[in-house]
Every structure is written in structure tokens, then in C-alpha cells.
Amino acid sequence: MAIVVIAAPSSHGDEIDVKLQARFNDFRVQLSSGSAWLASLSMADLHVGVEMRRGHTQVTTGLSQLSVVDLTPAIKHDKVLSMTSDEVFRAEVSLYNRTEPVEQDFVDLELSAQLGGARLLFMNRFIADLLAFMAPFSATQAALAEASQTAADAAQQAMHNAYAQAFRAKLSVTMKAPVILVPQSSRSDRVLVADLGNLNVSNRLEMGPWSQLSTPAVLDKMTLKLDNLKFYRGQLAADGSVHSECLILQPVTLAVQVTRNLSVSWYRDEPEIDILATLGDLTVVLSETDYAQIMRTLNENLSESGTAELKPLPPPSPAAEAAHGASRSGGTTSTAVAHLETTLASVYTKLRFSFDWTFVGVELFTSSAEEKVGTAGSHARLSAVEKRCPVLY
């Protein structure tokens, strides 16, 4: 680990006041139940850089390697989390100090991020082992839960304040969405695969009508696009690759456009939040073999229990429950009345949601071993599809 801090006070706005650089070369954590090793988490080459200037603060960060390995003996596939790209993520964040009056093209935050592809292996037995490992730390879990709730409340309040101030953000995020593999069991090569494709997030600020104070309305239009999402079955090799792929859900595209009205305090012709979701052609092709493997996976994978005994957490004390209930109920009536008065004073469209679904197709058919090798007849079209889908019984 290396940390370098440079402080250089300056009277010029473009020069660096404080510069910090930190790098973690290697980080590893291993979990054990006392009688056997459970899992290993490792990260490599995590770097963070911060530059503070008079007008803005810039943060750059990145991570090269991340992996989680199941250390349970006598299992067939142990790579719970692995990366399929050269880096985990790389991001650059710029926070700008707002000055009055605010310029039309000003943004409070600018985020540019590239996230690599991840490969996740879901095993119910592994999740049960982790829960069993965490069960004895009930006091720590309670403290973490309380801290998480406090952090969530603070984050919600910060988001509310930022939204009230018409917080402007410019986003450019490219992500190779994760590939989720669900083996039939911990000792099986048959696997169901959910490939979430490629994710792109971007936004732009659009100026609307001008107010009487010569201030334009500002609309933040964010576009989220998920390409090449698909679901299939196959056979998992020792190196983690999937062979003998057979598509169940044909590749589909999902696009979501979110428009935020940042001038909702005086411009009400547009909703405060307008969401438009568009789903491309959705085609499902399901054979008897596909259905059988899905049901076997649900039955065998989800029924596998962990190697460690899962101890239930102790119930909270009556005094703690009473205090928690009192904290939740306090001030409810006055808050509700104030909210009702505010709502009646000004009624406008707060949220609008539209969903466009172009095509849905489901093909269900029976198949046998003879049909899968290309038997002609009334199933000719289905046989052409099933030629690439070997029987995995």
C-alpha cells in the first residue's frame, strides 16, 4: 500500500490545492468455519487519486482484478466470482462548486465510468455457508443494520436536498453486464446462463421554456440501454467456459429513458419524472429438454444445504422493539397533515410511466432424441433449432 499527499495552497483557481494518490497492490481475505475453509476474496491493483482545486474536485479510481473462490473441497466449480475483462472498473468523477447565477450548461457532477464483465456462479449451498458463517456475529449484524439504516436515511435526505436544488449530473457509463451461471448442482456440468449483455447509460441537459425571470426550464434526459440480453442452457467446462449452448430466450434489447424536470418548482407542463421503457421483440423457445433442466436446477441447486449449521439470530428484546416502534410512530400525524396541505395547495403530475412492448412470442414443443438430430417432417423448423442443442441427460 502506498499513499502520497501533496498540499500546495494556491490563489489561482486552476491550480491544484491538494493532491492525494493511494494504491493497494494486493488484498486478500479468507473465511473459515473453524473446521474447514469456506471462501477466499482477493483484489489487486486498486488505485485512487484525488485532486482538489478551487473550482472543483476530481476523483479517479480503478480496480484491475477481483475474484471470489469457493474453498469447499470436492466441488466441481469453485470460481464464484471472476472477471471476463482486463479490469473490474475505471471511473472519473468531477464535483464542481456551484456559483450564482448558475449558467445554462453548468453541471454539479460529471461521471465517466467503464465497468468490465463479471461472471457470477450461483450456488445455494455457498450462500447457506456464508449465512452460517455470519450467524454467530449477531451483535455485529445488529450494529451494521443500525448503521446501514442511519446511512440510508442520510443518503435519502441528501438526495432530497440535491433534488430540491435541481442537482445537475452528466453521466457516461459503459458496462459489460454480468453473466450469471446457475449449475444444476455443485457436482453437475449442466448450467443455466443469464447473459445480461451490454449496458450503456448517458444523459444530456435540455433547455425548455423561459420563465419571467429570464431563466430557462432545465430537463435532464437520461437514457439506459441494455443490449443482447439472453437466457440459455449449456454445459460448463473446467475452465469456466460454456459449451453446447441452446438459446431459450432469444437476444432482446431494453431501453429506458428517464426525464427529470429540474425546474418543477415553477415549470409544471412536464412531469417531475417521466419514464419511457421500450422492450424489443421477446421470443422464448422452450423444449421438453429445456423445461426438464430448469426444473432439475430449481430442485437440486436450491435444495442443497450448506456444510455448516445455520444458527438463527436471537429475537430482539421487547424494549428494543418498543423503542423502535415509538421512533417510527412519532410525529406521524403532523407530518401527514403538512403533506396533505402541501399536496392540496399545488397539484401536478409527479410521475408518468409508459411501457412499449413490440412483440411477444412463445414456442412450446415436444422433442425426442431422433428429432434433435434433424428428422424432417412437421418439426423441420424446430429440428433446425435443436440440431445445436444436444441432449444433456
Rank of each mutant, 00 (worst) to 15 (best):
R187P: 04
A338N: 15
S138E: 07
M1E: 05
S329T: 09
L199S: 01
E146N: 09
A194Y: 04
I294Y: 04
S202V: 00
L38N: 00
N261S: 03
G330F: 13
R233L: 04
H77K: 06
F365A: 01
A380E: 11
P136E: 03
L109V: 15
T57N: 09
D14P: 00
S67Y: 03
Y267N: 05
Q257N: 12
V242H: 12
E272I: 08
A177C: 11
G197S: 06
L20S: 12
V337H: 07
Q21L: 14
T60S: 13
A74S: 10
V59E: 05
S334G: 12
E300W: 08
K76M: 15
T307E: 13
E100W: 10
T72I: 12
L254G: 09
Q212D: 15
S10N: 10
T366F: 08
A154K: 13
A322W: 07
M159L: 13
P251S: 10
N25T: 03
G325K: 15
I16H: 08
A166H: 08
Q104Y: 11
E206A: 08
L199K: 01
M295G: 00
S265F: 00
L351V: 14
T278N: 11
A44D: 06
L181N: 08
S211G: 15
Q257I: 07
N261I: 03
S138Q: 06
E371P: 02
V362G: 06
L66Q: 10
D239P: 00
T307R: 12
A147Q: 14
F353R: 11
M83N: 07
A74P: 01
F24C: 08
S138R: 04
A44N: 08
A158R: 09
D195K: 11
K19V: 03
C389M: 08
H324M: 12
V252M: 13
T60G: 08
D17Y: 13
P101Y: 11
V18R: 07
E146Q: 11
D356G: 05
V373W: 03
T289V: 12
L344H: 11
L46A: 14
T140Q: 09
L364T: 02
L236S: 05
D220Y: 02
V284Y: 12
I6R: 04
A91R: 02
A7Q: 13
G55N: 15
L224F: 01
T150H: 10
G377L: 12
L282G: 02
D17F: 14
S327F: 07
N261W: 02
S327N: 15
L41E: 02
L66Y: 08
S148L: 10
F231E: 01
A145G: 06
P271Q: 00
L282H: 01
D239F: 06
